[in-house]
Simulated assay, not measured.
Amino acid sequence: MSGLPQVTTGDELPGRTVPITRAGLVRYAGASGDLNPIHWNERTALAVGLPGVIAHGMLTMALAAQYVAEWAGDPTLVRSFSTRFTRPVVVPDDDEGASLELGATVKAVDDDGTVTLAVTATGPDGKGVLGKAIAVLRA
């Protein structure tokens, strides 16, 4: 029997709002080794044509994958997670940062209990920041 919550095709998972702050970007940069200044320095980000400091794409993906794993109740149930980065998340230099809205819809439930989710991640401007985000969870 699967440890996954019982779902059927078309069900929507409860959404979650995740804050992304400049301090969080600096911590992620140190942990990941991605010290590109576009993720922490406004001058550099603007100089290369960005609208401001942007979150690491892999951080955005990791937050979406964490959302799925927490919904599943066990991160080992996540068999795969794939996505494309479609739009950056601009993170203002203030105490609030940016909000990432996460959600998912059940695309399929296979006979063996495998669940496929279409995951959404929406930036503060209301536009999607991940495209074709798909999570497959094993029974």
Rank of each mutant, 00 (worst) to 15 (best):
V89F: 14
A108I: 03
A47D: 11
T122W: 10
D112V: 07
A135E: 02
A64W: 11
A98V: 02
A133I: 03
G33E: 15
P19S: 14
W71N: 08
V89Q: 15
V7W: 10
F81T: 09
D95G: 11
V129A: 09
A55W: 06
D111F: 01
K132Q: 10
G49M: 00
V18G: 07
K132W: 02
S2F: 11
P5I: 00
N41V: 06
L130I: 01
T76A: 07
A135Q: 00
A72P: 06
L35G: 14
T114H: 14
R79V: 00
G10L: 03
D112T: 08
P92I: 13
H39V: 08
P124Y: 02
S99G: 05
E42W: 05
G113D: 09
L46S: 11
T83N: 12
P92W: 14
G103H: 04
D11E: 06
G52Y: 09
G126Q: 13
G73E: 11
G52N: 04
D110A: 15
G97Y: 13
I134Q: 12
G49I: 00
V53R: 05
S82A: 13
P75W: 01
P124L: 01
P88H: 05
P51A: 01
A55T: 01
R43F: 05
D11R: 07
G24Q: 15
R43Y: 06
E96M: 08
T114S: 11
D74Y: 00
G113Q: 08
P51I: 00
A121Q: 05
A139R: 14
T116V: 09
D112Y: 13
G113F: 10
A69T: 15
D34P: 05
D74L: 00
L137V: 05
M1S: 12
R43K: 14
W40P: 04
Q66R: 14
T116I: 05
T83C: 15
P19M: 10
A121L: 07
A108G: 09
P5F: 01
V18N: 08
G103F: 05
